[in-house]
Write a protein that binds this DNA or RNA. Structure first.
Length: 822
DNA sequence: TCCTCTGAAGCC
DNA sequence: GCTTCAGAGGAC
């Protein structure tokens, strides 16, 4: 190996097409031990300096004019070798830049910040002041006072004369430094400990001058408590100052050191330790199916189909215990909205401080701390929402995806990954077991299981043999014919009153997806629309504003119609706020807690409201999507669905599947304990199979029917999809581009593939951009993706108008744009 | 003739 | 994405 040089291959933080490949850099002798696979480095790139990830290391004899790595930013590489490989897989699979894929796997604080700082050059000649050009004077004066400033400030001080700054730097008047750092500094805490034995401390105490009262006090403290203590606690406890301690450190009596401290988000919470519960026969069988491949250390995916209330979580917990016994780690994914304190408590209760929790409620610093516990192997279980799938464990034995059908496992931004697919990749890499748990699996999971691609275990019974709630469908068209024009059917009204009278609780569910409160003029029929998007504005009572839920535009509700000046302008629709008003009017005295984006936007509000409901401070919990799952309140005996079909008519081929899943989940909230539950579903489409079959708990029949429908219309899982969405500020340009792009794809794609569109996207205009979409249906098992991916990449590259935005998504991501909660 | 503006080409 | 550099067109 004599004469050969060490080379690092680096993916640079310049996410563009042209730079989306590794660049080679020399590893300087001094950094040899620090430059490791997966760590972040600072490298020169063109005329500037950027951050990059080391994705490969090699030795080479010939190194034609390579630049060298400038610095290493991590002691422990944030990416394991496995995650580096996963990054390349994702870049290919989800058609994104490698840097984008790599960056998505680490906490946001490691994304790096760039700072260009200007300073006086240390060798600047004071006498040279006379040479100062007039235009540089303000900057140099400023630097004399402040020592340094940001590049942009410096530019302002020289009237935006960038060449002048360059000249000043060349003439060694100023120094320009590009700083690359983390977004937050790690929290550091000073610890103080005695450096001498108690006897030595006593000697030191006697040698102290009589005047050093404070120092004596501190020494006496350590003689009483010869243990380490955080500096801040010591200072407050003894009412001394830092310099007192410093003196004693200088005397070698004490020692202090800075230590990184974890911000523990659960610091003040006690978790009740729990023991494994005894399992039902079904549960035991399911557990066995999961545990066997864990013991064999082979890759295996298991669909755990368990009805609501069948005790899936206990199966998860015992499977995890088994993995920990084999010395390996477990990742648990749950949808963000069900990452409730109830859920966290169960895991913390069983596995204590072996658990790291990652969810969006944490500050970026707290998130980083939890992540570091995983990276350092200080915990064995990671539980979190979608991005927790990247938990940097090195011995993964089990990955569990709870409520695997949830759409929140699909990331809508680049990289547009599905956590289920990433999980399958990681499980295969590690020879781990993948568990997909749900009462209502995604249709494709169901289909794959039926083809034998997953092991398939079912939990058909609720624990303790509790019966399923009785579900009644109320046809709202009938109600209208009877003359009931309110949003509560007679049945729901009676049941609700009876429920409250019995002292029990009810949950009212309003599916606002695609159906929110809008403002319309009764005179001319004009609806208030967002000036930037083709979307009607949503009415918010709290501050009497209308808002666009897509771009955030907000304005006060106008007094008169902007189009005809009529005063008869008012809000329509069935937002949660209106249901709440109506409840107050029709059921005086009934206490309601409303949960929606308005009431839960503040940190911790979600938790607080649920706690209040659990403590019986309200009779009715009214809410959107966010109350559909995970909740388990013993006193809830009635569940009402105000309008079951609001999302049935969205332009989404999964509309029926979503409706079925949601209704099944909501119904599962009732009668989970001693008292039997009742569910009332109000709908205008009573005959639709998704509503009917959810009401009668006929899961199997629904899936068969839905598979039939998908096959008829050639939709997934019977084909695979690419969605291409293009947007442009100009309507004509986007249409012309769309046509041309479609022609290119059509010509290049395999003949068996099918191109649909371009057609206007479900939201034809968003944030002042016109949007078109195209759909390519293909057969993955015939290898079409292998041809389509390069083709789409090529076609996308051909249209490089900076105003044009193109997004390519496997599957139909765009149609799911309407997010839960809104 | 010099200067400014704009677009394209690297970047290891 | 940013910087530089070259080539075009404009003002003097």
């Amino acid at each position: 190996m004599s004469g050969s040089k060490s080379i690092a291959q680096v993916i640079v933080d310049v996410p563009t097409k042209a730079t989306d490949r590794p660049f080679d850099y020399l590893v300087p002798e001094a950094l040899m031990s620090e430059v490791r696979l997966g760590c972040r480095v600072k490298v020169p790139f063109g005329p500037r300096k950027v951050l990059g990830y080391v994705v490969g290391l090699k030795d080479e004899a010939e190194t034609p004019r390579l630049k060298a790595i400038l610095d290493v930013l991590d002691f422990v590489p944030p990416l394991t070798p496995e995650l580096v490989r996963l990054g390349f897989f994702m870049a290919d699979e989800y058609m994104c830049h490698t840097m984008t894929a790599l960056a998505s796997m680490v906490p946001a604080v490691l994304k790096g910040t760039y700072e260009k700082v200007v300073r006086l050059h240390p060798e600047v000649d004071a006498q040279a002041d006379s040479l100062l050009t007039l235009s540089a004077a303000p900057l140099l004066t400023h630097l004399r006072e402040k020592k340094e400033c940001l590049w942009d400030e410096a530019l302002t001080l020289v009237a935006n004369d960038a060449p002048l700054l360059r000249q000043l730097a060349e003439a060694k008047w100023i120094q320009v430094e590009e700083r690359i750092g983390d977004r937050v500094t790690r929290q550091k805490v000073m610890w103080v400990r005695p450096k001498q034995s108690v006897n030595q401390l006593k000697q030191t105490l006697e040698q102290l001058s009589g005047r050093a009262k404070r120092q004596q006090e501190v020494l006496r403290y350590f003689i009483r408590h010869p243990e380490e203590i955080p500096l801040s606690s010591l200072l407050t406890e003894l009412q001394v100052v830092r310099s007192t301690i410093q003196k004693l450190v200088e005397l070698d009596a004490l020692a202090w050191e800075e230590r990184e401290e974890y911000r523990d988000p659960f610091k003040d919470r006690k978790f009740q330790p729990t023991k494994p519960l005894s399992l039902t026969e079904e549960q035991a069988e399911a557990l066995q199916a999961i545990v066997q491949p864990i013991r064999d250390r082979r890759y295996c995916s298991v669909l755990l189909e368990g009805v609501t209330g069948s005790g899936k979580t206990e199966v998860y917990l015992q499977a995890i215990a088994e993995v920990l016994n084999t010395g390996r780690e477990a990742i648990v994914l749950v949808p963000e909205i069900s990452l409730t304190p109830q859920m966290v408590e169960r895991f913390k209760g069983r596995f204590g401080d072996q658990v790291a929790v990652l969810h969006s409620g944490l500050s970026s610093g707290e998130r980083f701390d939890e992540w570091r516990k995983i990276r350092r192997g200080e915990v064995k279980v990671a539980i979190g929402a979608r991005s927790a799938i990247f938990a940097p464990f090195q011995q993964v034995g089990l990955i569990i995806i709870d409520e695997e059908h949830e759409s929140s496992y699909k990331q809508e931004e680049n990289p547009k990954y599905h956590a289920r697919e990433v999980a399958a990749w990681r499980a295969q890499y590690h020879g781990a077991t993948l568990v997909l748990g749900s009462a209502t699996p995604a249709l494709e999971t169901y289909y794959h299981a039926s083809l034998g691609m997953h092991e398939w275990v079912t939990l058909k019974e609720r624990v303790h043999g509790r019966p399923f709630p009785a579900v009644k469908i109320v046809d709202m068209r009938e109600e209208l014919r009877k003359g009931n024009r309110t949003m509560f059917s007679d049945t729901l009204r009676e049941e609700l009153l009876a429920c409250v009278e019995r002292g029990e609780q009810a949950v009212l569910f309003l599916n606002r997806r695609g159906f929110s409160t809008f403002v319309m003029c009764r005179e001319c029929g004009e609806t208030l629309m967002c000036p930037h998007c083709d979307i009607s504005l949503t009415y918010h009572q709290t501050n009497r504003t209308v808002r666009c839920h897509y771009c955030g535009y907000a304005e006060r509700v106008p007094q008169t119609c902007p189009s005809c000046q009529s005063q008869h302008i008012r809000h329509f629709g069935t937002g949660t706020q209106r249901v709440e008003e109506e409840l107050a009017r029709r059921f005086p005295g009934v206490r309601v807690i409303r949960m929606d984006v308005d009431t839960t936007s503040r940190k911790g509000a979600h938790e607080r409201l649920l706690k209040a409901f659990g403590e019986g401070k309200a009779d009715v919990l009214l809410g959107t999507q966010m109350i559909a799952k995970g909740l388990d309140f013993p006193k809830v005996t009635l569940v009402g669905v105000i309008a079951a079909d609001t999302m049935l008519h969205l332009p989404d081929f999964r509309a029926a599947e979503r409706t079925f899943q949601l209704l099944t989940q909501v119904s599962g909230r009732a009668g989970r304990h001693e008292k039997p539950g009742k569910v009332i579903i109000q709908t205008y489409s009573a005959e639709h199979y998704s509503i009917d079959l959810a009401a009668s708990h006929q899961t199997e029949t629904f899936y068969k029917q839905e598979c039939f429908m998908r096959k008829q219309h050639e939709y997934p899982p019977y084909c695979s999809l690419f969605t291409i969405l293009i947007s442009h500020p100009d309507r004509v340009t986007v249409m012309r581009t769309g046509q041309e792009m479609a022609r290119q794809i059509q010509t290049g794609m395999p003949a068996e593939c099918q191109l649909l569109g371009p057609v206007p996207a479900p939201i034809p205009r968003l944030k002042d951009r016109y949007r078109l979409q195209m759909l390519v249906k293909y057969q993955a098992e015939r290898g079409h993706a292998l041809m389509l991916k390069p083709l789409l990449r090529e076609v996308v590259a051909m249209f490089d108008d900076p105003e044009l935005r193109i997004s390519v998504d496997r599957d139909a991501g765009e149609l799911m744009e309407i997010r839960d909660g809104w």
